[in-house]
Every structure is written in C-alpha cells, then in structure tokens.
Design a protein around this nucleic acid. Structure first.
Length: 498
RNA sequence: GCCCCCAUCGUCUAGGGGACCAGGACGUAGCCCUUUCAAGGCUAAGACCGGGGUUCGAAUCCCCGUGGGGGCACCA
C-alpha cells in the first residue's frame, strides 16, 4: 500500500562535524521522501550564535552529497517555504511567540541568569530537581507586557500545565505518558531574541507542513513539551519517530571518538567525511548504517539505495540503542568493492594513489585493479598492497627471501635458476611462465610454494601480494630480472655472513 | 538525585502466544580450495537478564526487580 507523500526534514545545527548518527537520520528521511514521492527539506538550525561554526554547513552539504542524499528544498535550492535557515526566520518566530503569549501559553520572564543559577544551586542542595520556580509566571500579563515594551531584558517561557499528564505518541514506542509536574517552564525565546530549538523546530515543522519527524532519541525527554506546544497552538502533530542512539563499539555509552574498540584507526571513526577519506564506499556505509536500527527480513542484508527506498519502512525501525560494528562495515565495504566493475574501482582508487604521492598510469592501473579487487576491504588498502608496482626498486628484508625450509644458499640458487630461466624464456606471459616455473621447481626438487615464495618477496618486497605470475607479467621481464638479481645478491651476502 | 527510553548469541538483528530443542549476518574457530594474502565453499561454538503473574501453552502479554542508555542549559 503506497503511503501518502511525506514531507520530511533533515535539520542539523551547524555546531560541529557531520556525524554518522546524523547521516543515518538524514538517510531515513531521504528514503521515506523518495519512497512516498514526497519532499526532503534541508533546514539549517543556526539559532545558537555561541556555538556556530561557519564551516559546518559546508561539511554537511559535502557529506550529504557523498552519501547520495539529495534534498528538494533547502537554503541552496530554495523552495516554497523559504527561508530554510532559522537565523533568517526571526520575524516568523516573533509572530508565533506573540500569539502564544496572547493564548496564555507562554510568558515573559525577567529573571537573570544569576538568579537562575542560584535557584538551581539551592534546589540541588535540597535534592530537588532543578526547575524554574515560576516567579515571573505569576506576574500580571499587563505588567509583564509593559516591562517588555520598556525594553527590559527577558526570555519567553512556555507555561507548562502544573497538573495532569501529557501523552505523546512515538511511532516506535507507542504512547509516552509524563506527569506535567515533572516538566519545566522551558525557555522558548532567548534574551538575544533568538528562539530555542523547542520553538523554532516546532514552528518550522508546522509551517513547512512536515508530516514525519525523525530525530535522535535524545529528544525524548523534551518530547512532552513539544507535544504541549502543538496542543497549545492547536496544530496537527506530525508522526514522531525517535531514532535509537548509536553506542560505542563496546556498547558502553554514546558513540564517541574515544572508543577505539574494533576500529583500525586507533579511535572510532564517527564522521562521514573521515570514512570517505579512509576509503569506504558511500554505498557500503549507507547499507551498514541503514541496518543499525532497521531490518527488512531474515535473509536480506545487501541493499542498494534504490532497494532501500523501496523496502524501507518505519514499522521495522528498532527503538533500542545499537552499538556500531566496524568489522561489519569492513565486510560490507569489501562486498561492495568486489561488486564494482574494474573501471569503476579503478576510478575510485586513483585518488588514493595521488594522495600517497604515487603517480599512476591508467593502463598500468587497469592491469593491477583486477588483481587486488578481492584483496582489499577499503580503497586505501589498494595503495599499500600495490605500491611496489610503482617503485623503482623494492627493499625486501633479506631474511624473508629465504625459502621455506631452505638455507640461504639454496634459496639463492633457486632464485638464480629462476632468473636464468626468465631471462632466456622466449615468451613472458602468464601460462607459459607459470608452467616453466613449476617445471623448474620440480627440477630443483622444490615445492612450487617454496620457489614462488622466494620470487614473491624478491619481486614485490612483500610477504603478501597479488598473485605472483600475473604480477611479474605486469611488472615486465626487465624489472623482474633486476629485482631477482638484487635478491640473489642479498641472499649471497646473507650466506657469507652466517 | 529526578524523569524518560530500552532489554534475544561478543555485535547488528529475525521473532509480535503454539510453526522456536530460537533463524540470519558480522566476528571467532576448524576443514576444503590454494604460489602468499584474500575471495569462495563447508562445518562448529555462541543468546531469549532475573522473579512473579495471565494462559492449556510465553522469547512473544502484564507487574516488579536488575542491567544498559538518554536527558535534566538563555545547546541543539
């Protein structure tokens, strides 16, 4: 059954980097919008002038694009509900707050931060929950209005009912009931004239006709307030969906950079752009993220963006917190890398060579890529595993050159024989070369693995490499001969000194 | 301290009263394949937090406890 077109929004605050938790929220929003033929709104919630970071918005845009999440309305593309930047919507909030005061749902408060701090202190000393004591709530509306008009510094608070209970419906959790007496008279408008999240987000969501609100479950504690605001203004509530939080890989605490468990970088990678820079594919990251807190069925785990759009459903969202699992990300990334065409993989790998200062050629890369495709889990590993292709010489550890169960002189001899064979062999192609080397091993009474092992280290300088014969053919006879000759010298020296 | 949320293998999860001696995936271990490493194939170990109810019957519903998480700002 197709759902009605959903209007959803991704509304980050430009106060920091783009976190994978935000990415997942944005993804779900995007999926629902696309699935239902609705719109995704990108809104900037920049009402905190103290924590504002100018570069943040740029990172959001870059990260969102990397993920492949596109929005229909936003500060850059405009739209019928513009502006999409809260700092530009001051008049709207002021009009709304005025109406709230008129309705008796909000009031001006002239208490100073100092008084509030003291109040909190004494309440805590008495082991009472810290809450506003309602001093200004008891002011006559007319006198409050006068003081406001005279320019007295003030905030505006929500007049929370002091009895009864508030019920809000979270789609994942059902009805959430809270006693009103446990709530506070939250500040809606700060003394600088800018709204808090509570006011701005509610006003915007309503005015922008948002139908579904996906947000982090950190908002659950103030959820009743938001319901109360909607009720006071007699607005129709959206469907509220509080997404579970991401926990550290250890399962202890909210995901933070500190927790390095299971991560290969020494600290948890929690920013989208860092994931990108480490060589993760956006399609793998999306797939991985989508599955933390959402599932489709028992046996399907691989989803393209198109499939996610088709299969996503709010009902299958899971309200419990999820510990991130980086090894599963690695797995997904490997799967997606293997699923790429050689050309596509080559295109994605190229920047990582450039970043490592390695100059590549398209034709060489074209030969190398299929060899490493099933051996790498992240794009940057391509560089590590194949850099020997691009170096003039390689520097193997002489000890590594000794063949399995062989002496240095036996190893040197085998290398010399191979060198001779490859020097004189007419064709330097995969099948004949492999056959010839196997014959040689046979003659020398070596296992192929022993001979190949020596050559592998000699030619690549690494214990682990792409398949040997293919590698040598790509490298070319001249380079191979040179490197084997070098290895022979190293082995002979080893022989002499031991 | 107060309020709220959550609770199935180490992790992500399937499960929404009988189909469950609980299924899948990652990870782990073993075997096979193999010139290294991977990839691939096969196999194994591994969970319903505890206690009360309700019911003929509970992983599934209710209550309590415990554990975990989140929040308690003129931040979002």
């Amino acid at each position: 059954m197709p759902l009605a077109p959903a209007r959803v929004r991704f509304a980050p605050s430009p106060t920091g980097r783009f976190h994978i938790g935000s990415a997942r929220t944005a993804l779900y929003n995007y999926l629902l919008a696309r699935q239902t033929g609705g719109q995704l709104i990108f809104r900037i919630e920049d009402t905190d002038q103290k924590r504002y970071i100018p570069e943040a918005e740029q990172e959001f845009v870059e990260a969102l694009k990397w993920h492949g999440i596109k929005w229909d309305e936003g500060p850059d593309v405009g739209g019928p509900y513009a502006p999409y930047r809260q700092s530009l919507r001051g008049d709207i909030y002021h009009a709304q707050i005025e109406e709230m005061i008129d309705r008796g749902a909000a009031y001006a408060c002239f208490c100073t931060p100092e008084r509030l701090a003291e109040l909190r202190k004494s309440q805590q000393a008495r082991k009472e929950p810290p809450r506003y004591d309602g001093l200004c709530r008891r002011l006559e509306p007319s006198t409050a209005e006068e003081r406001v008009r005279s320019g007295e510094k003030h905030v505006v608070r929500f007049k929370t009912p002091q009895q009864g209970e508030t019920r809000g419906v979270d789609v994942l959790r059902g009805e959430i009931v809270v006693q009103n007496e446990t709530l506070d008279d939250y500040i809606l408008m700060k003394s600088d004239g800018l709204p808090t999240y509570h006011l701005a987000a509610m006003v915007d969501d309503h005015l922008m006709d948002v139908t579904h609100v996906f947000r982090a479950s950190e908002w659950l504690p103030t959820f009743p307030l938001h319901v109360l605001i909607y009720e006071a203004m007699e607005w129709q509530q959206p469907a509220w969906v509080h997404l579970s939080v991401f926990l550290n890989p250890s399962g202890k605490g909210k995901l933070s950079k500190r927790d390095a468990e299971g991560s290969k970088s020494g600290s948890a990678v929690i920013f989208s752009l860092d994931l990108r820079n480490m060589g993760y594919l956006p399609e793998a990251v999306n797939n991985w993220m989508a599955l933390m807190g959402w599932s489709y069925d028992d046996h399907t785990e691989l989803f393209s963006m198109e499939e996610l759009i088709e299969k996503f459903s709010i009902e299958k969202l899971n309200p419990s917190p999820a510990a991130v699992n980086y090894s599963k990300l690695d797995h997904f990334n490997g799967v997606y890398i293997r699923g790429l065409s050689v050309n596509e993989l080559q295109k994605r790998i190229e920047p990582f060579y450039a970043q490592a200062g390695i100059e590549t050629s398209a034709s060489l890369l074209n030969q190398i890529t299929p060899l490493i495709q099933e051996r790498i889990r992240t794009l940057d590993e391509a560089v590590q595993i194949s850099s020997f292709f691009f170096q003039d010489e390689v520097h193997p550890d002489p000890q590594d050159l000794i063949g399995k169960n062989l002496s240095p002189s036996e190893s040197a001899n085998a290398a010399r024989e191979a060198q001779m064979l490859m020097d004189t062999k007419s064709s330097f192609e995969i099948e004949p070369l492999e056959a010839a080397l196997r014959d040689l091993a046979d003659q020398l009474e070596l296992k192929p693995g022993q001979l190949f092992g020596i050559l592998r280290i000699a030619v690549t300088g690494q214990r682990v490499s792409p398949p040997l014969i293919e590698t040598m053919v790509i490298l070319g006879r001249e380079t191979v001969l040179k490197r084997v000759a070098e290895a022979v010298k190293l082995l002979e020296r080893l022989n002499d000194s031991s």
